[in-house]
Design a protein around this nucleic acid. Structure first.
Length: 493
RNA sequence: GGCGCUAUGGUGCAACGGUUAGCACGCGGCCCUUUCAAGGCUGAAAUACGGGUUCGAUUCCCGUUAGCGCUACCA
């Protein structure tokens, strides 16, 4: 048995924008596939369009991948540094007659907009076929003499692939199945621009051959152009890889995801406080399913269960609420220790880490995070509503005051509570509980009144973990201090 | 316009000829409860439409419709 070659896949973004959700999902699928198969993932930057290329965006894309935990085994390679390779390939194809020189001026796409407009408005039966049909480039059949004339007159020249006028081109797609198209549907596409730079069709094939890519996993928007590439593989004498086109991710309005759908760069999700693993889990389930109803799949399980056969053919809508749900799951299910680094970073960002108890006492930090986490949705929650767990510098939420500090007897009772708590020999859940309830009984009020008021006094909000647990982790000094600090505000009512 | 792909609740996925069409998010209700979550239970909610094939179609075929993609010297 010849050992099957290890799969080699690649993620090939072009630096014309940040790493968006769709690209991230494609990268993730490639990565999961590579890991599952024990193959290699290459990273290739497709920067052959000097017009739209923004080199400074490359770092952002790399950062996005790193945040997602997607590491590549080779690269990044830059196509802009491999131009000789593409030119050589184009020359070879030209020399063999598989390609020809084209002297036409580049199509004016400005007119592409105008033409359809006319077709719509002029509801007419105008005879003229305004729609530009796929008309073969006249340069395809230029005689040597005609060619020589143009060469000498210095007309810029592009290289086009000579597509057979008859027959069909077929290939196998791991997701969409066997594909076959009529060659007459394929135009003589450009390989090398008159600038000497390769087009996507050329560079992608040359590189995938050169880098020995075995599986091309990419967005389904490339499905229609794949026959062109298959033709190129054949002309270049190479065996095509296995293609696997994955469905696109759409916005809530079912149109292609774009800036107007709000956050579409993975970086913005990082900033918003999503956990990479939650994001990964969510993304993996967009266009892929393990085959059963499992949804909470940690990364190791994703790698273990990923398969191209589970990839769907239907476009998926990006559902933010579900993403948030995944984040809550990852905020509360894994062992707290896994969460600590993220919360620590969040606290540092908010300037709450230096000199805090959290920074000095890891066990305490873990305990507090564990107490809060089932109530958080985003990492930012640890420094917003849960701020009082990490600093004395917090204010009282207006709604909480309105709701729980209304009773005018509260000031006196809270003062007594502070004294009672201060006198407690042991500081623990039950002791606090007993002290508070005893006071409530003595005062003839329901414990809830004191409990709710106390909560607002010690954490500033109506939302917090169970009071006595909160008191326990905060410690006697802080609790008593905060109760007394609330007195002026309470009595001013 | 041409070519192609797709079509299960609002959303993401299951059911790969036979199920009371399942799960999850979201939404409503109940339980738990000192707040808010979490958790448990529960309700509403889907096979786009029309033809076939078949004893039997969500599932296979055709058409319609809709959405999306490609149709650039963009990727």
């Amino acid at each position: 048995m010849a050992p099957a070659q290890k799969p080699r896949v690649r993620f090939a973004p072009s630096p014309t924008g940040y790493l968006h959700v769709g690209g991230a999902r494609t990268a993730l699928f490639n990565w999961l596939f590579a890991r599952h198969e024990g193959g290699a993932l290459l990273l290739r930057i497709e920067d052959t369009d000097v017009e739209r290329n923004r080199p400074e965006l490359v770092d952002g894309i790399l950062e996005g991948l790193k945040w997602l935990g997607i590491e590549w085994d080779e690269g990044p390679f830059f196509q802009s540094q491999r131009l000789d390779l593409y030119r050589a390939a184009a020359e070879r194809l030209f020399a063999s007659g598989a390609a020809f020189a084209c002297y036409c001026k580049p199509a004016a796409y400005a007119g592409a907009d105008a033409a359809p407009d006319e077709a719509e408005e002029g509801e007419g039966d105008d005879e003229g076929p305004k729609t530009q049909k796929k008309v073969a480039c006249p340069c395809r059949d230029l005689s040597d003499a005609e060619r020589a004339t143009r060469e000498t007159s210095g007309v810029p020249r592009a290289i086009r692939f000579r597509v057979a006028r008859a027959g069909t081109t077929k290939f196998e797609d791991a997701v969409f199945g066997p594909r076959e198209v009529q060659n007459e549907e394929i135009e003589d596409f450009v390989l090398l621009r008159s600038s000497g730079l390769p087009t996507y069709q050329l560079s992608v094939v040359v590189d995938d051959i050169d880098m020995r890519i075995t599986h091309v996993i990419r967005g389904a928007d490339h499905l229609s152009n794949t026959p062109k590439q298959v033709l190129l593989y054949q002309a270049l004498g190479a065996a095509p890889p296995i293609f696997a086109h994955v469905p696109l991710i759409l916005g809530p309005d079912r149109t292609r995801l774009s800036k107007r759908h709000g956050a579409t760069s993975v970086g913005s999700y990082a900033e918003e406080g999503f956990l990479p693993e939650a994001f990964r889990n969510f993304l993996a389930l967009l266009g892929w399913s393990p085959g059963d109803d499992s949804e909470f799949l940690r990364t190791s399980e994703l790698v273990e269960r990923f398969s191209l056969s589970g990839v769907s053919r239907t476009n998926a809508v990006f559902d933010r609420p579900k993403l948030e749900w995944f984040n809550t799951q990852y905020l509360q299910k894994p062992p707290v220790e896994e969460l600590l680094p993220y919360v620590e970073a969040e606290l540092k960002r908010a300037g709450l880490w230096e000199g805090s108890q959290a920074s000095r006492d890891r066990a305490w930090f873990a305990h507090v995070v564990d107490l809060i986490r089932s109530r958080t949705r985003l990492l930012g929650d640890f420094t917003s509503w849960a701020r009082a767990f990490f600093t004395d510098d917090f204010d009282y939420d207006a709604e909480a005051r309105e709701k729980f500090w209304k009773d005018e007897r509260l000031a006196a009772m809270i003062e007594k509570l502070a004294a009672a708590l201060a006198a407690l020999p042991d500081w623990n859940h039950d002791a606090c509980d007993a002290a508070l309830r005893a006071l409530a009984t003595a005062e003839g009020v329901k414990a809830g009144l004191l409990i709710n008021a106390t909560r607002v006094a010690i954490v500033g909000r109506a939302v917090a973990p169970p009071l006595f647990e909160t008191m326990t982790v905060l410690g006697k000094d802080r609790v008593v201090g905060r109760l007394r600090r609330a007195l002026p505000v309470l009595s001013s009512r």
